[in-house]
Amino acid sequence: MKIEMTDAWCEAHGLCAGVDAELFPLDDEGYSAVGDGRAVPAGKEEVAGRGVSACPVRALRTIS
């Protein structure tokens, strides 16, 4: 599983990082620094799903 992000949609709410700051890092301005295709470590799939769901503008998604 991987996490992908649509940069243009991120509004720096930071709710994803509130779920897991290591899996959903933020840049210096508070925007998501996930990038495209961040691998989700084994055992963190549920946390990844919660972080993606926390995004109020749906800028994040998981892919297989």
Rank of each mutant, 00 (worst) to 15 (best):
V40F: 02
P25S: 13
A33M: 00
E4Y: 14
S53L: 13
E22N: 07
A21N: 12
D28V: 02
A17Q: 10
M1S: 05
V19S: 01
G35H: 10
V40P: 02
G43S: 04
V57E: 08
G35I: 15
P56M: 08
G37Q: 09
M5S: 07
G37W: 09
F24R: 06
G37T: 09
A39C: 01
G51R: 01
E29T: 06
P56S: 06
A33D: 15
R38S: 03
A39Q: 10
A8V: 09
G30H: 10
E45W: 00
V47M: 10
M1F: 09
S32D: 02
A59Y: 14
H13P: 04
T62V: 14
G30R: 07
A17N: 10
A8W: 08
V40G: 03
M1C: 05
S64M: 02
L26W: 08
I63F: 06
V19L: 07
R58T: 14
R58C: 12
V47T: 15
D36G: 03
V19W: 09
G35P: 04
P56V: 02
V52K: 03
V19T: 11
A8M: 03
A17T: 08
M1V: 11
P41H: 12
M5V: 13
L23Q: 12
H13Y: 11
L60D: 05
R38L: 12
Y31R: 06
V47N: 03
R58I: 11
E46M: 01
D20A: 14
D28L: 01
T62P: 02
P25I: 13
D20T: 07
A48L: 07
P41N: 10
P25D: 09
C10I: 10
P25V: 15
D7E: 15
I3E: 07
G18R: 11
